[in-house]
């Protein structure tokens, strides 16, 4: 779930067909595979032109892959980074009228939206659905290290070792939340550690 109270965070919705589009590019990573399959089966979602890229969870197995091709997934790629490279190349050849749909972790969505923006796509051309863990990418404001997959309100920065408090402030440019030293005022006086982004 996402918290709408965070004004700087993108609002993720659920993937539904955008009938105003003329060409549809769909990408999903890991737990984002399920929303992608749901979108492909949705009434009114055109067979073509569309292009579907999925990096399924490693545990999907042959049956999972068969299910993916059965519902029209054109390309299955091994992992998120290769998917992002494929997406980048794919968008190079796309025309105005394209709609982009993405489902997966917040880190994945952040990376997809950044690539989309580099191709000139704006918010009304992109649909996103958050799936799976709510873990955050956290940017350390002191040393600028990005800490991946943070599930707790506090995280020891991999760059400078400070205990960071994860603020509810999100930068699309950095695709990360803000981390600021938790005990700067009184060393050691940190709030209790809680898993808040499972």
């Amino acid at each position: 779930m996402t918290t709408s109270a965070i004004k700087s965070r993108p609002i993720y919705g659920s993937l539904v067909p955008d009938p105003t589009g003329r060409h549809h590019v769909v990408v999903g990573e890991g737990p984002g595979t399920a929303p992608v399959m749901r979108l492909l089966a949705a009434p009114g979602f055109p067979e073509h032109p569309r292009h579907v890229l999925v990096a399924p969870e490693p545990a999907s197995g042959p049956a999972g892959l068969a299910a993916l091709s059965a519902c029209g997934v054109a390309e299955i790629v091994p992992d998120g980074p290769s998917l992002l490279r494929r997406l980048d190349a794919l968008l190079d050849g796309c025309r105005m009228g394209t709609r982009l749909y993405a489902a997966g972790s917040e880190s994945f969505l952040g990376a997809v939206v950044k690539i989309a923006a580099e191709h000139g796509l704006l918010d009304d051309e992109c649909r996103t659905e958050h799936a799976g863990s709510t873990a955050r990418r956290v940017h350390c404001t002191h040393c600028r290290q990005v800490n991946e997959h943070v599930t707790t309100n506090l995280v020891a920065c991999a760059g400078c070792g400070r205990t960071l408090f994860v603020r509810d402030h999100y930068s699309r440019r950095l695709a990360a939340f803000m981390g600021v030293q938790a005990d700067a005022e009184q060393p050691g006086a940190t709030p209790a550690l809680q898993e808040v982004f499972p």
Binding site: I6, K7, S8, R9, H139, T141, R144, R167, D168, H169, Y170, S171, R172, R173, L174, M178
Partner: peptide, 14 residues
Amino acid sequence: EFDLGMKFHEWHGP
């Protein structure tokens, strides 16, 4: 560094 590129409501988020 964190707020660069943000929209009006985003940088006023906090």
